[in-house]
Design a protein around this nucleic acid. Structure first.
Lengths: 136, 136
DNA sequence: AGCTCACTTGCAACAGGGTTGCAGAATATT
DNA sequence: AATATTCTGCAACCCTGTTGCAAGTGAGCT
């Protein structure tokens, strides 16, 4: 419990029950979550709008990051210490077409890509879709 | 003009003015387009719903493919001969944070990734964000 | 050209995602 | 405990995307 407060404080955020609950939901379920998932889990306690704003705040402060998907955005915890100034992510996301879960493969890094002259990359996002070990 | 009809016919689709216009829009603007882009370009001539259904049909028939994005889905022409049965894409998409355009880098392929035991990948999607040569 | 059938379109209506403004409530600080 | 600041809930709104149904259109046939 105190760990949640610490995390929020460390990102210059007031500790509120909504933020604690959203953060602990991300920690408990390990996969990437959509706004709808959170609304399903916490919607009886908090307003839709509050959950949206919490996600937006967490994004800006570097607590979570966006996970691309072909059917709607999701969010996942930043494993390393991202901050308001800088997100650094080059890990891979895997979406299982059977169970629908999307997970970060933290240990794998996106291989380097040789871009043509003139391109200045800042951010990489690799989504792999297929079947995960659980559903295999 | 006839080329459009050929393309549609080749995918077992009736030639209608809406489909011709959507297809030629994709051919003229070379970058990835969202539904909103198409609605902006053709919305006075066709209903929103018709454009949605045209996109869905084109997707199924393998004329266009989805392009992931952190702020809404886009679509781009399939360069190779994709069919209803099989899409094959492993090229890279580059989104410019300055001009907002997303383009396919047809010549570049997504490097191989060694996944842990048990993962069966089927589909790869790499989005690189940064600054493109035009905006450099 | 005209007929027919199957496919396509437009309209209305809906569900969901996401945002904004504002008043009231909760938090951190003194 | 009082204050300034920030957060929350509510209402309202816009955009995205889908479905059902009736009317319209395309393609093949005679």
């Amino acid at each position: 419990m105190d760990q949640l407060r610490e995390t929020l404080k460390g990102h210059q955020l007031r500790t509120t029950t909504c933020r604690e609950d959203v953060l602990s939901t991300f920690i408990n379920k390990k996969n990437a979550l959509s706004h709808g998932d959170l609304e399903g889990a916490l919607g009886e306690n908090y307003d839709r709008v509050t959950i949206y704003r919490t996600l937006k705040t967490f994004l800006e402060k570097g607590i979570i990051h966006k996970v691309l998907d072909d059917e709607g955005l999701r969010y996942a915890l930043c494993s390393h210490n991202c901050s308001e100034e800088k997100h650094h992510h080059d890990h891979i996301h895997f979406k299982c077409s059977a169970c629908g879960e999307t997970n970060c493969l933290e240990n794998l890094h996106i291989p380097a890509v040789q871009l043509p002259e003139g391109y200045h990359p800042e951010n990489f996002n690799l989504l792999i879709q297929g079947v995960c070990p659980k559903c295999n």
